[in-house]
Every structure is written in C-alpha cells, then in structure tokens.
Design a protein around this nucleic acid. Structure first.
Lengths: 262, 262
DNA sequence: CGGGACATTGATTAAGATCAATTTAAGTGG
DNA sequence: CCACTTAAATTGATCTTAATCAATGTCCCG
C-alpha cells in the first residue's frame, strides 16, 4: 500500500477549515491526541509496550494501520471480532440492521474514537462500520488488549472505561430520543459534532457534515423531510447557515439552549 | 440486620406465579443462576477467590449483601463508584435526570443483573438506581474486580463482556425507539420482560409489572396515556389480558410478531 | 451536458400529545 | 370495618407534530 497515495486521497476530502486548525491528515501526536491526553490512547499504550517495555515516543509506524475508502466497511455485522480499531483520520457510521432489514445508525465515530466495541459481548460484531470518507485506522488485536489487561491494572481499567464510555454515549442518545422534538434533536446532534470537531482541533463553528440527511434521519429516529425542515427552521431563526452539507453555526448559545437537555 | 425479617418482607411482594416456578426469595444456586451458567456470575467468581484460591461451592454468605426497600435507592447519580452490585432478588429502575430535570428510565434490571456499570467511565454514577420492590443485592468492590482482572485474563474478559452487554442493550433499545410505533414498543418491552422472567425461572406468560405506567412511558419515550391506550389495544386484539399491573400473555406469537424488529 | 443521488419544499394525513374528566385500587385513620 | 384520601390508571375530545405523498430543485460526476 502506497501511503503517500492514500494520504493524498484522504487529504482531498477533508474539511476546508481555517489554516489555524489542524488538517485531519496529520496524524495525532501524543501531545495533541485528546485520547492520549485523557490517558485513553490505546495506540500509544501498545506502542510503548511493543518496544520491550521501554517507553518509546509515539509513532504510528510501529502499529499495523489500514485505510478504508469512502463507502467501504471496516468490519461487518457477524464478522468475528479480532481487532479493535482506533480511528486516526476520517469518520465512520455504525449501522445496525435488524431482522426486518430496517437500518439504524447507532453513531458517527470521528478521529480518536475506538471502534469494534460492539463485538465484545459475543465475539462477533453487531454493526457494520462504514467509512463516510476515506479514513485511516490503527488495528489493535483484541486478545492482545485483554492479555495486557491481565497484567496491568491501569490498562484493564482503561479498556473498561472505553467500553463504559460508549454505553454512556448511548444512554445520552436515549435521553435525546425520548424527550426532544425534531428541532431539538438536530440541535443536540450538531452540538455533539461541533464539540468533537473542536476536540480534534477543527473549528467548532464551521464544518462539513460527512453523512447524508438520510443517515442523520436514521440516527435520530426522524424522516429525511423532517430533518431537512428542521435545518431550514434553524436557518430561518438565524442560528445556522446551512447549505447542503456545509454548516456554519451563527449563534452557538441559541443552539446550546435548544440542544442541551430540555 | 435480621435476615429472616428481610426475607419475609421481600417475600410479601413477590409474583404470585404458579408453584412450579421458583420464588424470587430463593437465592440462585450455581445450577440455576443463569449468569453462573453463562460464566458471568461475578459473585460466584469472587466467592471462589475469597476462599484462598480454593474452588468453593457457591454461597451467598461469603459476600457482603444489602437489602434495598421499595422506593429507596441503591446508589445515586453523582455518588462515587465504589461497588458494583449483583442483583439477587427484586427489581430496580435506572433513572437518568438531565440538567433540565427531565427524567428518563434507562432500564429495569431484574434478578441476575449487574448494577453500577454507569459509574465506570468517570468514577461517579450517572444514574439513580431505585428499587421497584424490596430487593437484595450483593456488593462487589470495583477495585477488587479490576485487581482480579489484572491477574486473570478470563476475569478481565468477563468484566469487559458485562459492560459491553449493557452497551448492546442500549443499542437495541435505540432501535426500538427510532423505528417502532407505540404498540410495537410496548410489545417489545413486554417481550423483554417476559424473556427475563423466564430466565429467572418464572412464568413468561403471566407476571406482575413492578413499575408504574409513568415509568414505562419514560422508558419508551411515550406519554402515560399512550402507554395505557397501547395496553388497551393489545387487550382488544386478544394478545394480552391486562389488569393494572397484572399481565397475562394470551398470544405470545402475535406479541412476538409485533415486538420483534418491525 | 446529462444522469443520478441527494436535498428541499408543499399539501395532506395520521399518530401521538395534550387537556380534561372519571374510575379504580390501596392505604389511612377514626 | 368503613368513610376518606390519594396515587395510579383509564378513557374521551381536541390539537400539534411529524409522517406520508408528491413534486421540484441542486449539485456532483462521468
């Protein structure tokens, strides 16, 4: 695999954010990776250990990586869990398909997220992980992670917390789905994206949505027309500027009032 | 604490199920405890280890237990996570309250469930765990569990799976909330209860709901009147007999058709 | 430049929320 | 034990929101 080629590909699809924000292409360094900062960077942890117990500077070159093109899946529901994946660059949707063939988008992981946790309970993934843009992941052998857990209490706790974090994410989403109307759901959704953009070093005010309206609808339990109308209404109330996937948050406070709790 | 007294109390509030079904008062034995059968009984695991590494027969007397009266909370949102709890007898609701004071019921754990997982991510619980009836739990020190994980890969994996299981539970609930109408939601909810009653040795056909309509409504993102009407409609279509909290499933197949996926 | 996926907008319908009134059951205290 | 109180549940009438149906617009890509 030609890394330079892949990088160029990935670069083409990135956000056009202001120059003072990092490009998604640049691999997170230990200093800037929010997961490393929170002591949650599994990659950094593994890198350290693979160097025979000697604490090594973070380097992506020490671990197996994989690119996933837009629309391709990193893994599929039913596949046997072998790896977890740390998402370096790009974004993904986790799709659940029930027995009736109805599809639901569980979440939209972005750079820094740990993928594959849905396979831990049974040893088989329960979701399809589909790239929303050309993306780059680092593969982490799950059995290695468990093995490391069983010799290192800090590593064990870190893995537990990573799984628990995902649970809490869904619990919050539950709250959104049971207590908010369409406009509030969209506001809440955008706030979440905005915060994660900020955490990755991008502008929290202006960004490009990587998913379709259809994906958003299936994530928030709405119909595509309702999503579209909600965007329109937020634009009319001068909270957003929306033009298809391009988004500009004009009044973050108002958005927060709408999307937080209530 | 007078165990005999507590037992009597708990007994009074149990389901009036047929005599061939186990009373909730009886403590699950290793043979009948479904979590032990699935290799997921943390209590059994700890009991073994507390006996100085010698594999001991399961006994509830070897671990600290605690009774929680109806309406009391086992823990509260914001409390520091110290213990996880395995629920032996009774049932509980996990309540989330957001900053606007809106309440949502995340789940209704029943006998066999592991409680307190919501505190793992941050070290503080995010839910209130409130007993729906007088209940009995076994306290498991979380730091002990982590310590055990870090010397025993099987224990580490078991804990990871327990957390991941909860995540998958919420993912399924998400699917229910985004793709089902009120009648289907109630059907799905009742099927879940029914299956768990069966797994605990009770009749899956006839049981008493321990929660109010209000709790069900806040769990499924509906209003109390809609819950009531859904029950009424299921009764009219001869799928259920409902009389307040008492439930009799007359046509399990029809209920399954309604509540499974779409 | 034309095809196709994606998105928006309008008109109508249906499901559930809301408002309001009873009904039922379970205590509680005289 | 019975009247009284209160919480929980049911039912009906009306209103609101979002779904549905249908048409049109727009952008991306070959």
């Amino acid at each position: 695999m030609n890394t330079a080629h892949t990088s160029a590909r990935i670069c083409e699809l990135q956000n056009p954010g202001p120059p003072d924000y990092r490009s998604a292409l640049s691999i997170p360094s230990p200093a800037t990776c929010r997961m490393a900062a929170a002591g949650m960077c599994f990659v950094a942890d593994l890198c350290r250990h693979t160097k025979a117990g000697i604490h090594q500077p973070f380097s992506i070159d020490t671990l197996p990586r994989r690119t996933v093109r837009r629309g391709e899946s990193l893994y599929r529901a039913g596949d046997t869990l072998v790896n977890l994946y740390q998402l370096y660059a790009g974004s993904v949707k986790l799709r659940i398909t029930n027995c009736a063939g109805i599809e639901q988008i569980a979440s939209f992981p972005m750079a820094g997220a740990l993928l594959g946790l849905d396979g831990i309970e049974t040893g088989k993934y329960t979701c399809d992980a589909i790239a929303l843009e050309d993306s780059l992941v680092c593969s982490l052998s799950f059995s290695d992670l468990v093995a490391r857990s069983s010799s290192d209490a800090a590593a064990a706790l870190r893995l537990n917390k990573a799984i628990a974090q995902e649970t809490n994410h869904y619990r919050r989403l539950l709250m959104v789905l049971t207590s908010m109307n369409s406009e509030e759901r969209i506001a809440s959704f955008l706030l979440d994206i905005s915060e994660r953009m900020a955490a990755s070093g991008y502008s929290p005010r202006e960004f490009v949505l990587k998913m379709t309206r259809e994906d958003i609808a299936r994530h928030l339990g709405m119909k595509i027309e309702t999503v579209s109308r909600a965007f329109t209404r937020l634009q009319i109330s001068r909270i957003l500027d929306v033009s298809r996937r391009h988004l500009n948050i004009r009044d973050p406070d108002a958005l927060r009032r709408l999307g937080t709790s209530h």
